[in-house]
Amino acid sequence: MSDAEEAIRLWFPVSRCEEIVPRNVVQTELLGQEAALWRDDLGFVNAWENRCPHRGVRLSIGLNTGSELRCQYHGWWYASITGQCTYIPAHPGQKPPNVIKTKRYGCAEQYGFIWINLGDQPDAAAVPVLQLDSYTTMRSVFTQAPVDLVAQSLIEAHNFEPATSAGNYILETTGPGEKSVLLLQPMNAEQTVIHGLIPSLVRDADRLSVLRQFNGRVSEMRDAIERAAA
């Protein structure tokens, strides 16, 4: 499962959709690669390598204007969707060459999450399929432990099992009763994000308490895993 070559072709959730808010840029990391995620004012979500092509500054410190992302260093503009550089303030009268573009990652929205793919030919049809009629996403929990260790302890100590053929990256609770699904985002060799959902809609009146309980349970598991990893 931890075969890096293999992993690069897979899709991973990196954020809840609703946390990619307008005029914001999210910094994330997948398999050691940093990405900048941002939503334009029409709703389109961009997932770019977190480096300005010009001098390498993180795009996640840049400005989301709603239609383009502006780099903080020299103010270059990169258009939503295409990643094309559309304006270079140092040479305001010249059209930027077509070759100046951000590196875009495959990006899809599914089950309330943004999924990205670092491969050269991302195929959106390959986003893992979960048998869900409805779902409610939970708070994502950052964990200071490698993904293998997180998966292993969820399976061995916390009653989870693989939910799909996507290996140990997507797990669900074993046994009868309401299931919980955990989706693992391998950030790098030391850190993992545990995303979560439950396969049902929650009544508005119950929402906060469900979110809090779920977060409390995952945080406890996280604490145990981190103690084991330390």
Partner: peptide, 24 residues
């Protein structure tokens, strides 16, 4: 300082194709 500390990679690439220069 915060610009410098947000440059990736941290070392300066000497290959002109690594980062795109303009006339400026």
């Amino acid at each position: 300082k915060p610009i410098l500390e947000n440059q990736l990679p941290k070392r300066l690439p000497l290959n002109p194709r690594a980062e795109v220069p303009i006339r400026a």
